[in-house]
Every structure is written in structure tokens, then in C-alpha cells.
Write a protein that binds this DNA or RNA. Structure first.
Lengths: 342, 342
DNA sequence: AGCGCTTTCGTAAGCGCTTTCGGCTACTGT
DNA sequence: ACAGTAGCCGAAAGCGCTTACGAAAGCGCT
């Protein structure tokens, strides 16, 4: 007789069905070697009794892992929240539970979180968010991850490519070239660039795209006002203040993500600078709110949720011997924050 | 000697330290009965070797659970993303891993997710997001949850109070009264209200606060234009169109969350309606972007991340016999989207 | 009937950890 | 000097499950 436990155990089901727990286990995990008649009986009973397998026991015993880990810089950030949404979506479909960790952009924390995930025996790990330019910051995680893979773990990253694993890559460089070209085509020549920490590979990649466009247009890249600040709205505000104070001649500000662009828009409005009348502003990412700002933001759309989905699917399906790279498309979204210079 | 495993086991640490696994376990879990000298040595070694306990083994062996489950409507939504951020924050501090599920506002899915969480033996469950007015939609989850609690699980909810468990409650009604009063004080009398589904308790609570303020001002509540749409930016747009078309006389729109307000702002701008010149708009929640919109949004600030923290802390600390309710403070944030009617 | 095969099922060995229990050592008090 | 006691530590018993492995039973064949 089943005790008054919170949940019935496999043994309770087995006893009720009059079979051994081995048979019960096989019936439920649909392994062959059980007559369909017995298996059916066990499954019925299990459903009736509300049996749900104990994941810990199952995982310990070496069964397939039913969970995945997602590592993001900061879940409160819409960029990552949308990626998470994509990952959760396919997780649900595949019957996987998702464990989310955030690192606060701290490589140290990232390593700790990775270790925890691995120790928790998740079946797959998705790492989202920019890596760091300095390769020294990556070495340890890399080894850790490869050991994990050798042990059968699946790994995919989103937005970085220094880890030697499957990657979904947003078109950072191409997108940046596109948005810079858009500004150039409108006739802007005095363009300021607002960037996050250049230690982030995302920033490096986007910057490269911007320079490429500028050079193609014959601009002196060294003369471009470049302001580095935090990759946030607050950083955008700080950058805007600095640009306005030290380079009043600029006719456009190219921000390397939407968050900064939103902060810039806010400062411009507060200072009475018309957008796009006096200054054009562009962002990057196309977070959900970008289209509903006033003025709505010209930016580069990255399919965040889709990238989350792709990454998990990529990790789950039979992994190739060598790391694959899947490039996510970008789309230049021209809205109301850009116009020809006055 | 440690094998080439993905992660060292407790046994590996114990061997390295020259003690039994029992002693190693005690040292790491800070149980008494080990000399400080030995314990220190074990802990050092563990850190050096990058040892992280296997949660499955620990949980199976009856140790305290080191994981919590978080159920939200939609993680891509900034409101929930910020709550999640708070939960992850204290989770990190307490050394807990966080499993996130999203329900898409579907009570059915919610129940499934709850069951999964319980089967996964998480130590605590946090449910964020509005409940449903219809009590029939709650019954099953309620029983499920109570059984879980009897088995030692901790539960706390954010923003609902129909489940008979600890709750962190945003000041929906009071906040709504405050923002409505603000509009009234400015002199508005023809105010439209844009709401999400009235099946959501959050909507019901906020509506109640609005009516209270309106009645106090002597308004005929039944005559107020009320538009129900989705609780999203798209819903806000739809609501705005409808209000503009059918009630051109309104001088203010009171939206029951920021998302809708942002959509409304967007439509108003597109239609060339000046805010706050011709129409004032208010939101609710104060999502991060609200202050950087143009015009910046007058709204009611709810401490989302803080509520996430509180809920988890509440669940973790010794639970009282009867469910407690902690009210989170609200703050009326007056910005540029409201002004006296023309 | 006896042989080898396949199919079906039970026995038992763990997975890595926590915790009880008992043994050992080093004290204390008389 | 010796029992009594307290402090440390190791051996071992599981937690609930999966999965070799082996036994039993049924089959067709010679």
C-alpha cells in the first residue's frame, strides 16, 4: 500500500500493477521488452494514481536529462527576456524544464553559473549574450564546457563565437553596416557613435560594421566622435550629454543598442534638440518598445526570440562533430528617428 | 584518483583531503561534528577542485532542496522579466537555482507547470502574475499547492490572493485611486479607461481603485467609457483607436498598465493628437522604459524586482501557520504625459 | 523429446549524496 | 587509576530510479 507520501513512487505503481519496478520503469519510459498488454496496464495505473517520475532519481540513475540551462547577462533586460521567451517556448514543446541564471556581465559569475548547471546535470546549456574580447576571460569556461560536452552535454551560444561550440550569431557587423549606410545615404557626415564596453565582442563586431560603412563612404574613421559608456539607458544618457557638450556639430548619433538609443532620445528631448529635425538617432536590436517610442526608433531588428529557439534546437538535435554557426538575419527598420540633416 | 568526469564528486574531494565522504559532506554543509581544521581543509580543496554538489543526489538523499520554481505569464514581458530579476537575485544569494516556466496566461498550462515543478521537487514555488476572477479556474491548483505545502514545499504568490498562501501584493487598488485622483485633480472629467481582460484579478483590483476615486469626485461611474482589450501594447493601440473613434470628447485616457499606455501614446502620436496638450495619458507599473518615453509617462510605480525578492524571502523564511500578505508600496510618478485639460 | 532462439520479466547493482549509528580518542572528575 | 563523557570521524543504509544481466517461458525445428 502506498504510504501517505506527497507523490506516489514507481514502486507504488508497480505493486498496484503486480509487476516489478523494472517492468514498471520500462513501461513508462516506453522501452521495448515489455508486452504491450502489461505496459498499457502500468501506464493506466500510473495516470490514475497521478504518478510523476522523480526527476532527481531519474537523473541520478542516468536517465536522459529533461532540463536545460540558460545563462544570460541580465534577465530584466528586454533583449535577454525575449531570448529567454524563445528558449522557454521550445523547452515547453520538448517537455524540458529551463533553469535560468544571470551573470551580471561578470565572467567570474558566469563561470560559477556554468559549473552549477553542469553539476545539476542539465541536458543542454544555452549561453546568451556577448562574450569578452579578452580571450583570457574565456579560457576556463571553454575547458569546462568541452568536458561537459565530452560527457554528453549539449551546448549552444547566442551572440558569441569564442567558445568552440555551436553558435547562433546575430548579424552584428552586417546590421551595423546597414544602419551606418542608412545614415550616410541620408547625407549625414558628422555622426557620433555611442557604444557599450569595447570589451564586449558584440560591441566590437558592431563597431567593425560601422567602420566598414564609414570607410566605404570615404570618412576619416579616426575623426569620428566615439563615446563609450554602459550598454544601458543610463549609459545612453551619459553618452548623449558628452556628445552634445563636446561635439555640438554632429547631425546624427548611432547607438550600438536600443537601450542606449532610448537614453539618448530622452536627453535630446530634455535639451530641446529636435529628432530627427536637428539630430537623427539610430539604435540596434529592435526591442519590442522601439517601434512605439516617440519618435519611433530607426534600428536594426534582430530576431531575439527566434535566436533563442534556434539555439536550443541546434543543441538538442544531433550535434555535428565540429561547431556549427547559424547566422540570424537582420533587418534594417527605418522609422521616424532618422531624416536627412538640416 | 578522480576519473575524467565532467565534475568532481564528493568522493573525489574526500579522497584528496584524506577523509571519508561523510566528513566531507558535513564540512561542506557546515554541519557540526567536524573539527574546524578539517572542515577548512575540505572546503579549500573543494573550491580548488571546482567541486559543486550534484543537486539530484543531494535532493534524493533528503537534503534541503536547492532550487526554486518561478511561474510567470510571459517572461518576455518586462513586468515579469523584472520580477524574475529580483527572484534570481536572492536565489543567487541563497545559492538556489531558479527554474522558470511561463503559462501564456493559460490556467491549464499553469496547472501543468505547477505539477512539473512539484515533481521536480523544487524547494519553493513563486507564482507571479494576476490570478483569475473566476474561482473555478483556481480550485485544482489550490489543492495541488496545499498538498505540496504539507510535504514541506514553500509557496508564495505575487499579485494574486486567491490561493491561500503567502502573498506579495502590489497596491493595485490604492495605486489606481491615486492615479485617477491625479487626473481628477488636474481637472479632467471626461476620462476613458483602457483595461486588460477583466478576468484578471489585477484588472479587477485596479478598476475598483479607479471607481473609488471617480465616485469620490461625484462622477457617474456607469457613464465612463471603458474599453477592454489585451493587456499589451497591441491591446493599447486597439483601445486607443476605439476611444478616439467613439469618444472623441475624452481629455484623458487612464490605462491599467504601462504596456497599454505605450500603445495608446503611439496611436495618439500617429493620429496627431497632442499629449498632454489635447489628451493626457497615464499608465501603471512603471516599467523601466516609462520614464524615457516621449512624453515620459505618468504612472504608478510598482517595485517589481523588489516584489520578486520579497516573495522568495517570504517563502524561504519560516512560514507562519496562516498565509501572510505583504503589501508592496506604490508611488505615483507624475511625468510629462499628464496636464490640465485644455 | 530435445535443442536453440526470442520474448518477457525480475533481481540487483549502482547513480552521488545525507544522515544515523557506533567506534575511537582524549578529556574530565572522583 | 578508572569510569564517564564529549568530540570527531568512518561505515553503511538508504533516497527513487534506470539498466545491465540472468532466469523462465514459449516457440519452431529436427
Amino acid at each position: 500500500m502506498a504510504q501517505d507520501r506527497p507523490t506516489p513512487r514507481l514502486q507504488d505503481v508497480a505493486e498496484a500493477a503486480g509487476v516489478s519496478i523494472a517492468t514498471a520503469s520500462r513501461s513508462l519510459s516506453r522501452t521495448s521488452g515489455v508486452s504491450e498488454e502489461v505496459a498499457e496496464r502500468v501506464r493506466d495505473l500510473a495516470r490514475q494514481m497521478g504518478y510523476v517520475a522523480n526527476v532527481h532519481a531519474r537523473s541520478l540513475a542516468g536517465g536522459p536529462s529533461r532540463s536545460v540551462g540558460l545563462v544570460v547577462h541580465e534577465i530584466g533586460d528586454p533583449y535577454f527576456a525575449e531570448i529567454a521567451s524563445g528558449v522557454l517556448g521550445v523547452g515547453d514543446l520538448e517537455g524540458l524544464t529551463v533553469q535560468i541564471c544571470h551573470t551580471g556581465r561578470d565572467p567570474e559569475r558566469e563561470l560559477t553559473q556554468l559549473r552549477t548547471l553542469i553539476a545539476n546535470r542539465v541536458g543542454a546549456i544555452i549561453i546568451a549574450g556577448s562574450g569578452f574580447v579578452d580571450p583570457a576571460m574565456q579560457t576556463t569556461a571553454r575547458e569546462e564546457l568541452h568536458a561537459y560536452q565530452r560527457a554528453g552535454g549539449r551546448v549552444a551560444v547566442i551572440g558569441r563565437h569564442h567558445l568552440g561550440v555551436d553558435a547562433v550569431l546575430p548579424s552584428n557587423t552586417e546590421g551595423a553596416t546597414a544602419v551606418a549606410t542608412h545614415l550616410l545615404d541620408l547625407g549625414h557626415r558628422r555622426i557620433a557613435v555611442a557604444t557599450g564596453s569595447r570589451q564586449l565582442t558584440t560591441v566590437a563586431d558592431r563597431l567593425e560594421g560601422v567602420w566598414a560603412a564609414f570607410r566605404a563612404a570615404g570618412l576619416d574613421v579616426d575623426g569620428v566622435p566615439l563615446v563609450e559608456a554602459e550598454f544601458t539607458r543610463a549609459g545612453g544618457k551619459a553618452a548623449a550629454e558628452e556628445i552634445l557638450d563636446t561635439h555640438p556639430e554632429v547631425t546624427a548619433v548611432l547607438a550600438l543598442n536600443d537601450d542606449m538609443a532610448i537614453g539618448i532620445l530622452s536627453v535630446l528631448r530634455a535639451r530641446g534638440v529636435a529628432v530627427p529635425g536637428q539630430v537623427s538617432v539610430t539604435g540596434f536590436d529592435d526591442v519590442a518598445v522601439a517601434g512605439d517610442l516617440s519618435p519611433s526608433l530607426t534600428t536594426v531588428r534582430l530576431p531575439m526570440a527566434h535566436m533563442g529557439e534556434q539555439a536550443l534546437l541546434m543543441a538538442l538535435k544531433e550535434p555535428s562533430a565540429r561547431p556549427r554557426r547559424r547566422h540570424a538575419p537582420y533587418e534594417l527598420v527605418v522609422r521616424d528617428s532618422t531624416a536627412a540633416p538640416a
